[in-house]
Structures are given as structure tokens and as C-alpha cells.
């Protein structure tokens, strides 16, 4: 009887396991061996380059994601619900990632946000904290690139 119920439980869990299309995530969930940089190496193309906020966040961001951006509500769903409609409504919006710097559980992404092709871009640094192969926390600083600069080097 005990054996039977154990087998039933195992069968139940096996059938309940979601089908995971992403092999990197499947491997990560079995045993979390990815570094913070490796997680961002997966997240950056999906989010910053393809602007697939829903897939990027649902795959790599923890549901209880702590967001420090003062213009966003905290949590993964709030981020997706804000970002995906924005990208859908603004297909011209682009991010250019200029450098990625990782140290332990933190990764900084220095990027250029070009949300409006006619307007000035913004300089952004996003800092992500990774725990157990998921992004669990996010800070950012955003500054519009001024029209004139005291030097010839650009902001990136």
C-alpha cells in the first residue's frame, strides 16, 4: 500500500512537471549550477536584444523579484505587465548593451535605451542580483543623454 501510494505520487509529480522548452533552464532547475553571469548571458539576449519581456522574465526572474526602480511596482508580474505592452506599442524601442560586469551574485548591465528614435537616448545601468539561477532583485539608474557634452567621448 505504501509502495503503491509512493508510485502514484511519483507518477503525479512526473505528469505535473511542466514541459520546459529551454534546455539551459531545465539544466539549471535540476541543479542550480549557473553563475550570475551565465544567467544574465541568457536573459540579456531575450530581454535587451529581442525585447521579449514576457519570455525573459517568466524564464529567468523569480516571481517575488524585488524591484528598486521607483517608477515600477515590485514583483515579476508587475514588470511584465508594464514592459510587454510598452514594447508591443513601441516596436522601434531599442536597447544597446555596452558592457556587462559581473561579480559574485551581482551583474551590472551598462546600456543605452533608445525608446523613441526621434528623441535623445538614455544612459542606464541596471544591476541584477541572482540567487539559485533566478534574478531576484533589480536596481537601476537612468539619465537622459544631454545634447551637448564637455568632452568628445560620448556617454558609453
Amino acid at each position: 500500500m505504501r509502495v503503491c501510494s509512493a508510485i502514484m505520487a511519483a507518477a503525479f509529480f512526473a505528469s505535473a512537471a511542466p514541459a520546459v522548452a529551454n534546455p539551459a533552464l531545465a539544466a539549471a532547475e535540476q541543479s542550480c549550477t549557473m553563475s550570475a553571469r551565465e544567467v544574465l548571458d541568457e536573459f540579456i539576449p531575450l530581454f535587451f536584444e529581442q525585447r521579449n519581456a514576457k519570455l525573459a522574465f517568466e524564464t529567468w526572474v523569480h516571481p517575488d523579484y524585488i524591484n528598486h526602480n521607483p517608477f515600477a511596482a515590485t514583483g515579476r508580474d508587475a514588470a511584465v505587465n508594464f514592459l510587454q505592452p510598452f514594447f508591443d506599442a513601441n516596436p522601434e524601442a531599442r536597447y544597446i548593451v555596452h558592457r556587462v560586469i559581473a561579480d559574485g551574485d551581482l551583474v551590472a548591465v551598462h546600456n543605452e535605451a533608445r525608446f523613441n528614435p526621434a528623441g535623445p537616448p538614455s544612459a542606464v545601468v541596471d544591476i541584477f542580483r541572482v540567487e539559485n539561477c533566478k534574478i531576484v532583485e533589480h536596481w537601476d539608474v537612468v539619465q537622459q543623454v544631454p545634447e551637448q557634452s564637455a568632452n568628445q567621448n560620448g556617454m558609453f
Binding site: N67, H68, N69, F71, A72, H110, V141, V142, Q143
Partner: peptide
């Protein structure tokens, strides 16, 4: 050296602070 600076706004949509 590169930098990005943003004034801390009076109000925030969350209770986490900017840091």
C-alpha cells in the same frame, strides 16, 4: 570613467528604496 545619475524621486511605486 562612465557614470549615470538620477535624482531620487519624492515618491516611489514600491517600498524598496532606490538602494
Amino acid at each position: 570613467h562612465w557614470d549615470v545619475t538620477q535624482p531620487v524621486p519624492e515618491r516611489s511605486m514600491n517600498d524598496n528604496g532606490m538602494f
